[in-house]
Amino acid sequence: MAAIVPVPVVDDLTSPGAQQSRPGLRASQSRRLNAFRYLVFALAAVFFGLPMFALFRMSLLGSRPGTYSFAAWKQIGTYPGLLGSIELSLEISVITFVLMILLLLPTMMWTRLRVPRFGRTLEFLCLLPLAIPAIVLVVGWAPEYNRIERFNLSGIMLIWAYVILVLPYTYRALSAGLNAIDVPTLSEAARSLGASWATVMTRIIAPNMWQAILNAALLSMSLTLGEFTVAYILGYNTFSVKLVSISRNSNNPVVVFAASAAGLLFTFLLLLILSYVGRRRRRRRA
């Protein structure tokens, strides 16, 4: 969903913000700030927690009032077409990431190494999908997909569109990674030792920016797993499209609530765990 999310990069977690001791603040100010913070957190927890709690409660409601059961959660595996749509979404998100990284990363590295004059154009093209919303692009993709469909009807075809949708976010993540390392020095050192350009890219630069690649993976996967607009209009049954169609066509769609809760929980845990993975690695390096 959300077409425009520029910087949710895990790296930001450890950016040099205020420290615990808060230099620049007196003790009384610090106490007041803490009171303010906990008030805000409490309000935010209620605001965001309530619908989530309601969602889980709804997914556990039994068939008779006042009873609770796991029936809806068990239906996730058995409801016709639902498991297939989850599989499709997972496949699409993995393949989109692979295709995107194969297309974008070599181009970004090659641009820095050999054609720096192309850098501005590359950035402009990568950020362009921010200014052209998915709902607009899909109007142009529809005729293109009508042609593609003559050859292949699989929902995997969505990857071609999704690579464009994730381009701005992954570009930023990868660009931050490239900025953090000294590309010219590394490549000159490798080249003077006889490495080919391909070796420089795959064995020198890419291993030095794996954190940025991880961030890009995270962004592109959480975006494509929940993407709705393009899949819905082009008529592919991905996870979120399937949820909407179940909620419209079934008179007791409890499975929708269970599947929504599962999807939110899965993505949340994925992001949370990966934020710790990134940190452990950094400490070891330090």
């Binding site: 999310v5 949710p8 929504s260």
Partner: peptide, 14 residues
């Protein structure tokens, strides 16, 4: 941050 990422990017229909 993880919660914001989920709601802003994955949220949508759910």
């Amino acid at each position: 941050l993880a919660g914001s990422g989920v709601l802003a990017q994955f949220g949508g229909v759910t």
